[in-house]
Design a binder for these strands. Sequence first.
DNA 1: CTATATAAGTTGTGCGGAACAACAAACACC
DNA 2: GGTGTTTGTTGTTCCGCACAACTTATATAG
Lengths: 414, 414
Amino acid sequence: MSSIPPPERHAPPAPRGPGAGARQSSLREANLRLVLSTVCAAETPLSRAGVAATTHMTRSTASRLVDELVAGGLLTELARPAGSGPGRPATPLGVARGTVAALGLQVNAGFLAAQVVDLSGATLAARVVAGDFVGSSPSQVLARLADLAREVSAQAAPAPRFVGARVALPGLVTSDPGTTLLRAPNLGWSDLDVAAGLGPPLTPAGETIPVRLGNEADLAALTVATTAPGRPGPVADFVYLSGEIGIGGAIVLDGAVMSGRHGWAGEIGHVCVDPDGPACRCGSTGCLEQYAGRRALLRAAGMPHATPAELVEAVRAGDATARAALGAATRALGVALAGVVNVLDVPTIVLGGHLGQLADVLEDDLRDLLATRILSAGWVPPAIASATDPTAGARGAALRELASVLAEPARWLA
Amino acid sequence: MSSIPPPERHAPPAPRGPGAGARQSSLREANLRLVLSTVCAAETPLSRAGVAATTHMTRSTASRLVDELVAGGLLTELARPAGSGPGRPATPLGVARGTVAALGLQVNAGFLAAQVVDLSGATLAARVVAGDFVGSSPSQVLARLADLAREVSAQAAPAPRFVGARVALPGLVTSDPGTTLLRAPNLGWSDLDVAAGLGPPLTPAGETIPVRLGNEADLAALTVATTAPGRPGPVADFVYLSGEIGIGGAIVLDGAVMSGRHGWAGEIGHVCVDPDGPACRCGSTGCLEQYAGRRALLRAAGMPHATPAELVEAVRAGDATARAALGAATRALGVALAGVVNVLDVPTIVLGGHLGQLADVLEDDLRDLLATRILSAGWVPPAIASATDPTAGARGAALRELASVLAEPARWLA
DNA sequence: CTATATAAGTTGTGCGGAACAACAAACACC
DNA sequence: GGTGTTTGTTGTTCCGCACAACTTATATAG
């Protein structure tokens, strides 16, 4: 006669997230995360004992956590090299290859790209399709991108578990729902739900892959900040400049992309370099983009239909117009970047896109200009590097998704 | 015959800090921190049950942690108001007053300041001494500051426990040891060990108080970001501009001051506003400081010995020269700040120092200028606020020291 | 004035997870 | 083959939080 229904035994309300009290399980999660990132970040493969040493945990604890990660398919035991030294030989650990992966997509003015990258940072599949997408139809382009996505996700064999997909876009993106493109001037797109535009959800293994968006420069910068998921790159603090038709940018602080309150940080292309300069389509005047953007630069050099490589040739050949244009661009870069460095104290510049291709011919002048305009240049001289992979946005998009595995390993144990 | 010495039973090597494995005690520390900051941040006093509710901990856990903090002298039980509602009345909790405090010092071109601030944010003692310290002798000035420090720390009665002292300085400060001033152009000081210059260590209660340094703009910005230790201010993300002889600045992201790789971030005064502008003492040209710095602005207004308040009067009276100078300063601020906002996506500006005093007469024009130059102004219009306490640096210095109590409550339990 | 409802705070038990210590395993070197 | 050295595993202990039951203190209904 139990007329009273049993009290609904639903799971605890899971009050996770920051600002919530730490429970016992938080310890395990934190240490699981620590072990995984330690193995990811290691230059040379670590053993269980090595993990224990670098994390200052006991060998027993480290061993237990490693075992969980190995059983969950995130780590693997590598073959151990013969002849190492005295004592019991260690079993080196590595990030599992091909078990967990993410899909990185990119829409650019000149191409579409799609990549599958796994947790070890290996590219399992990749495709690039050239085209001219300036002023293109969003629906057609996104349908084509979805085809590309299906293609590469099928190519990755054996099929990995997909943690997510992200689209790198040359424009302003909302960060709250993360599926709306506000404005991409080079494509002529605005107010667009990109996730919806991709059509039916991607379900390579039955599971639906969530699709998110990101700014192309932010994501390209991520490939410089981290060479593989959890593995920091050569520099941890830098300003990334992505030269396209216009100029995008990103700020990386301590290995993390600073995307700002609404996700719109890094618009260095619209820093004012000369208030009396030419009008910019953004409504301001004298924006950096008007001097060093690809279209403006090539036009000023008198070779509007040339490539950046051809501009380099012309400059080296002594073409006066080309030299003047390059000089103006370099001076503009000096003013804008010096401002950024003075404000942020991040004296490393990474030039990407066409600016990366021009790095050889402008690097020295730019360094000199920065040295005179940066207040702290006397103590820490500015450094300039370049990155030239055009599809860095797609790879960065995948890396960004994989970062969620490092953030919450327990969620992704098989 | 124990020739073998007993194994030195020293305490565990305490491998604290980030990147180290979390142990059981980490849980307690994290929750202790959470409880303390929750009580600090609460608008209206919380009870033990209230703490449990906001932190999602159980009442028993919250209660135990609160008891520890009360016993340790960091929290207190307040008198409970009569007549609240049904149920057992709650005992409201508050931050203990006068038990734990920090010493905030400030050296400015026009005054010295010293304050004692306790964990509740109350000022227990304060002194300001006017003077002209441009081109002054560091040793004399620091000796006087040390006297002031001794004075205010004796005034605070009953004697609190001092967690630290910090000196706010208008210049570049090293962050590694944190006791060396690299360069303070307005004072004419450079390469100076300020902690040593203060003379014999401050020991109000027998214990030596560690002395650290900080940039004045960074610390003044902290008083806007947090109204009291652990209590966030009205805005969490903003750019702070400190108008002095020159112009200092600070970037606050998510309530924390972004001080940069070496602690030199925020030098907005040397952002280039016009590459063809006047030469600046920093070696660059057209720096913001040359238009909107106090000295430059008053000189351009034709009233080099006036105060900012007198400039406001002249502008309101229709003085053409003053108006032109203010217009030029406003335009320069527009260019520089728009650049910062475009790069950082932090569309709130707080004007301090003389710029705070001028806020009334330049705010509207500045907002309009920013609206045309900020890329995202259409979605989030820029906001402008002002702060006018000249000794904000000293208070910020104390707040900064008190933050270490919130970071590690266990270290400061009585 | 008593009974009931409601909410705050306390007490005791159980459990998850890391520390610690002891042990087994696998190699190099003498 | 013995010894030393380092890795990895196993069992015990201890710490800190969750959970549930209980006590305390008020307001409100009858």
